[in-house]
């Protein structure tokens, strides 16, 4: 658990972070969202003491972080940033192994961990491990950055716009991976982004920041349903709020489930349980269908969803 208690950070006369309180529960993903210069990165960098705070208290699992040795503190916090910061003179494997090395893990354990992470992030332990950062694509480099942040098996993960510099498709892919990994590992995560869609997608709770203050701290659904101010309303976009709400829930939550899975008709169109309601609606509008079958991961038909259900119960 991370607790920020009336934390303030000044740069000279400018106040970057203004007396904020924030609690991040263990295992949740807290996304700090806001426009550039709102203090979100500053807040993140105070948590691993890359920046000292001007006043206030930051506690990790009840302990003030200023009492710990800064290096030891950081070794227990994965850190991934937008420009990856991969070490250009080291291979991918050595880059990922840096924290295990700093923690003085035995070489065998470290190498196992590196392979495990490469696979987890969808990289090839054979061919990708021996590459140098300049030989990677943007998406691959960012995967390595995330793998490196996870390598020491930290309890806490700090991510500063890790997918900010990627193209839309790669970003979408990595967000999916993020969700998958988070379901698997359950790290307490603080994630900074300026992209509200990314925030809505990844967050357990979102903290909207503006001019150094937290305007609203709530679940994505609450933020969408009850924006605390005109600023938040503007940020989430008035036009497609309904669609964004639909995007938060999956087909599996809303569908009418059959008592018994059925055999799927060959070549029939269908949704997957993990698809969002927004996606389902889009397919229906496109196909002009009022009802669509839902298939499980195994490929069996497990239920149906109708347009009425979507329109009435979705948002």
């Amino acid at each position: 658990m991370i607790e920020l208690k009336s934390v303030t950070r000044r740069f000279g006369d400018a106040v970057a972070v203004d007396d904020i309180d924030l609690t991040v529960e263990t295992g949740e993903v807290c996304v700090l969202v806001g426009s550039s210069g709102c203090g979100k990165s500053t807040t993140l960098r105070m948590i691993n003491r890359l920046l000292p705070r001007t006043s206030g208290e930051i506690l990790v699992d009840g302990e003030d972080i200023n009492k710990a040795d800064p290096e030891a503190l950081r070794l227990n916090m994965g850190y991934a940033i937008q420009s990856t910061g991969l070490f250009p003179h080291w291979t991918v494997a050595r880059n990922i192994g840096v924290v295990p090395d700093l923690l003085k893990w035995p070489a065998g354990k470290r190498d196992e961990r590196v392979d495990e992470l490469l696979i987890l992030l969808g990289l090839d332990p054979e061919t990708d491990a021996i590459k140098y950062p300049h030989q990677l694509s943007g998406g691959q480099a960012q995967r390595v950055g995330v793998a490196r942040a996870l390598a020491g098996d930290p309890n806490i993960l700090l991510m500063d716009e890790p997918f900010g510099a990627l193209d839309a498709i790669t970003r979408e892919n990595l967000q999916q991976e993020m969700l998958r990994i988070q379901r698997q590992l359950n790290k307490t995560t603080v994630f900074v982004t300026h992209d509200i869609d990314e925030a809505l997608k990844l967050a357990t709770r979102i903290a909207v920041m503006d001019k150094g203050k937290i305007i609203q701290h709530d679940t994505p659904e609450e933020i969408l349903r009850r924006p605390a101010s005109a600023f938040v309303e503007n940020l989430i976009g008035k036009g497609d709020r309904g669609l964004k709400l639909l995007a938060l829930r999956s087909v599996g939550e809303l569908m009418e489930r059959y008592p018994q899975p059925r055999k799927r008709e060959p070549n029939a169109d269908g949704l997957k349980e993990a698809d969002s309601l927004r996606f389902a609606l889009s397919v229906m509008v496109w196909k002009n269908a009022s009802r669509l079958p839902v298939n499980s991961e195994a490929g069996e038909e497990v239920g149906t969803v109708t347009r009425e259900q979507l329109l009435q119960g979705g948002a």
């Binding site: 691993n48 890359l50 290096e71 030891a72 503190l73 950081r74 070794l75 227990n76 916090m77 850190y79 991934a80 940033i81 937008q82 420009s83 990856t84 910061g85 991969l86 070490f87 250009p88 003179h89 840096v98 924290v99 700093l102 950055g145 490196r148 020491g152 700090l158």
Partner: peptide
């Protein structure tokens, strides 16, 4: 690249480690 130094520090390297393992090489 400042990002490299930033992340070296963020990983938990001490300033001597950053110098010897990252900056000088």
């Amino acid at each position: 690249n400042p990002a490299v130094l930033e992340s070296a520090k963020g990983m938990g390297m001490s300033s001597v480690q950053v110098l010897l393992k990252v900056e000088l090489p």
